[in-house]
Design a protein around this nucleic acid. Structure first.
Lengths: 137, 137
DNA sequence: TAAAACCACTTTATATTTGCAAGCAGAAAA
DNA sequence: TTTTCTGCTTGCAAATATAAAGTGGTTTTA
C-alpha cells in the first residue's frame, strides 16, 4: 500500500484503533508511564502498547526520558510532531459528538467545549499548553 | 474495546487504513463504482473493499443506488454523515503536508490549497459542494 | 535484610483479520 | 453467441490482535 496521497501518508502511520488513543492519553489525561496507558478504559494489550510506543518513538511523535526519582520508570512525552495531531483528534471528537448520540459521557465537554466556543483560537490555545507541558516543561 | 470517549467512538468505525480512503475517493476523485475504488493507487483488495462498503452503508456513511443506464452498476454516494468526515480528512491532509516532506505529489494543492487559503470558510465551501453533488444532485 | 510488589516490557499460544487469487452469476458489448 | 464487464464471494496462507504468563531489574514493605 503505497501512494503519495497526504491522507494515505497519515493513515499508514496512525490509521489504526490504538495509536491515537495513546496520543490522547498524553494530551488530555496527563499520562506519562507505560502502566498508565495500559490502565486506560479501552484495555490495550501490553504487547500492542509496546509495539505502538516503539513505532511512535521511531516516527518521532513521542520521546522517552528517565524519571530521576524512580529509576525503573520511563517518562513518555509528546514532540511537536505529536502535538500537531491535536486538530485531527479534535475533529474526530467533534464528529463523534455530533453522531454518537447518548453514547458519550459528559466529560467530553471539558475538552470539546473550548473548541466549540473558540474555534481555531481554542485549538491554538490548547496547542500552546501542550507545548508548555511536553516540550518546554 | 469499549469506552464512551469521542475519539474511541470514531476510531471504532473508521480507525483503519482503508475506510477513509474510500470516503476520499467519493469526495475528491468523483468515484462512484466498485471497480473505480478497486483501481485506486493504494490497491485495496476486493474482499476488503466489499467488507468496508457494507460497513459504511450499514453505518449510514454512504448509500447505494441503481444506475438507470447500466443495470448491473451500483452507484455509491455520500450521506451527510459521510460528508461530515471532511474536516477530519482535511486535517490529516494538512498534517501530512507539514511532515511528509518531498514524498507527496503536487496535486495535493488542488484540495489543500483552498483550506490553507480560506480556513474554516474553505471547508464549508467544500462541504456545500459535496452536498450538492451527493445529496441534492 | 528478606520478601513482596512494581515497572517496563517480552514471550507464547490462540483467535481474528488481512491479503491474494480464483471463481461466479447476471448484464452488456462484440 | 462468445467474450467482457460488473459487483461481489470463497478459500487459503500470512499477518496481526488478544490473553495470559513470564522476565529482570527496582523499589517498597515487613
Amino acid at each position: 500500500m503505497r501512494s503519495n496521497c497526504p491522507l494515505n501518508f497519515g493513515l499508514e502511520i496512525f490509521g489504526d484503533k490504538w495509536t491515537l488513543l495513546i496520543i490522547r492519553d498524553l494530551m488530555f489525561f496527563g499520562k506519562r508511564h507505560y502502566n498508565e496507558f495500559l490502565a486506560s478504559a479501552e484495555g490495550i494489550s501490553t504487547n500492542i502498547l509496546a509495539d505502538r510506543l516503539a513505532l511512535l518513538e521511531q516516527e518521532n511523535f513521542i520521546k522517552k526520558s528517565k524519571d530521576g526519582a524512580h529509576k525503573q520508570k520511563i517518562i513518555y512525552s509528546l514532540t511537536e510532531k505529536g502535538i500537531d495531531l491535536l486538530p485531527i483528534i479534535l475533529e474526530i471528537g467533534l464528529w463523534s459528538d455530533k453522531y454518537a448520540g447518548s453514547f458519550l459521557n459528559e466529560k467530553k465537554e471539558i475538552i470539546l467545549g473550548e473548541v466549540k466556543k473558540d474555534g481555531v483560537k481554542g485549538v491554538l490555545a490548547m496547542k500552546e499548553r501542550l507545548y508548555q507541558t511536553h516540550i518546554k516543561g
